[in-house]
Write a protein that binds this DNA or RNA. Sequence first.
DNA 1: GACGCGCGTTGCGGATCGCGGAACATCGCA
DNA 2: TGCGATGTTCCGCGATCCGCAACGCGCGTC
Lengths: 262, 262
Amino acid sequence: MGNDDDAGGLRSVSRAVRALELIAEAGDMGVSELGRKLDVHKATASRLLATLADRGLVERDPFSERYRLGFGLIRLAGAAMTGLDLVRSARPILEELAERTRETVNIGVPSGDGVVYIDQVTGSRAIVSVNWVGQRTPLHCTSNGKVLLAHMDDRELDDYLSMPLARMTPRSIVDPTQLRAQLDEVRRRGWAQTLEELEEGLNAVAAPVRQSDGRVTAALSVSGPAFRMRPVDLPRIALLATESALAVSRRMGYVERRFATG
Amino acid sequence: MGNDDDAGGLRSVSRAVRALELIAEAGDMGVSELGRKLDVHKATASRLLATLADRGLVERDPFSERYRLGFGLIRLAGAAMTGLDLVRSARPILEELAERTRETVNIGVPSGDGVVYIDQVTGSRAIVSVNWVGQRTPLHCTSNGKVLLAHMDDRELDDYLSMPLARMTPRSIVDPTQLRAQLDEVRRRGWAQTLEELEEGLNAVAAPVRQSDGRVTAALSVSGPAFRMRPVDLPRIALLATESALAVSRRMGYVERRFATG
DNA sequence: GACGCGCGTTGCGGATCGCGGAACATCGCA
DNA sequence: TGCGATGTTCCGCGATCCGCAACGCGCGTC
């Protein structure tokens, strides 16, 4: 899913990034295997991996001799996160929200045709804490994703809906018309919800985070098990999420307008 | 610090990674500036950044027009972390340790001439939770680092100690002889401590995590404010940390030997 | 043990791709 | 308006990196 082919740009660099993505998807990779997937000679793949390993972006398992993503990436990502003022500004607010709701709080941004979680705070009631940071999930079956879709340009939204929507669970919304109706509601009331649409037993609500120019560039969600986050509970939780999202937006320099619509 | 020059390998790829590291250090960067630091023509830097941006590893601030690290890196790092069995295995144990000590727990691995934290669980008493994941800190003034140094090959250790040790606080150990004595103690009693050597007011203890072959490849630490983690408290906390580290080691396939020394 | 098959790593020569220079557009500033 | 700095695009040439092939290695089979 999301094989964005080979875009333009410097060839080896492009190829290197592609290699990293492939390894990320597969978990690990051998030289010849990478060569086949990149459609290059295995000698080329070998040299590429050697370079990446030299720089610490990949490393080889001592036993299987296969390549995996390396710690260098984690270091770079750490710098990326601290460099992103969004994470910096949002952190304390996410923590407060996690404390108030006692559930897991995530903040995500659009990336490709999905949403990537860039930070997470685990609530005290979370039984098993899955770390979603860095994960990419589909837009149409996550609450964060619905928020982002709801505030997307019409053209982009049309593009997205022109592709078939993946069914992750029986309750995933895969009908574009139905999804559009939901997105209208999201815009109207200011928050989105998902009811076991990504994973069975997992509900969530999300609210938009705005940049200083008012554009929605991120979304903030509270998610938890369906038995604790029943549909009847969601409006209350969503209110807290909306407040927090607004607080983050303010930190990003957003000031509310007094226009009724935006 | 740690400008590892231009190592071998494919040129543009090497250069691209170098560029990412430079941007990580500086926070953000312009085209010409990068060109100067990489010692290439600005046209080259422009193309390089365009390619990286195309692939999502960097992105440009809409206003300042300067480049920053992008979300693509976070996505890759997320995959790297879930791919690393160390993080997977350690997570629940870190959480248990954080709950028992109510302080912040980190796990780190050596990278270059420092230690990189690859995962962290924030304890409930942590006042302000700094996210260290992805950060690189010097070996000689962190408890994790001391553990790693203590179990390093003699040659590597000599190399490290041949360079001057940075003084981060007044209490940093910068005398190689004194540090060696501490490392002996770390090996003997099985855990390391730092007393406000990295940051004033911050104490920590750490214990070694071993791979299946017995080599120490990571370290696990508990850190907190000096007034809660007084020197007299450290042995008790270190005992917990050592137990947890051993539990992680076992999950990695390590079985204790009955030899007195190793 | 010989053989075939797959993996990964090195030389090597030659085509390709990317580098550097230059020109151009833009912006801020005096 | 001129100046300096930044960033992008075009073009020709040459270093670089690719594909080939050969080699070493491990594994299973005949």
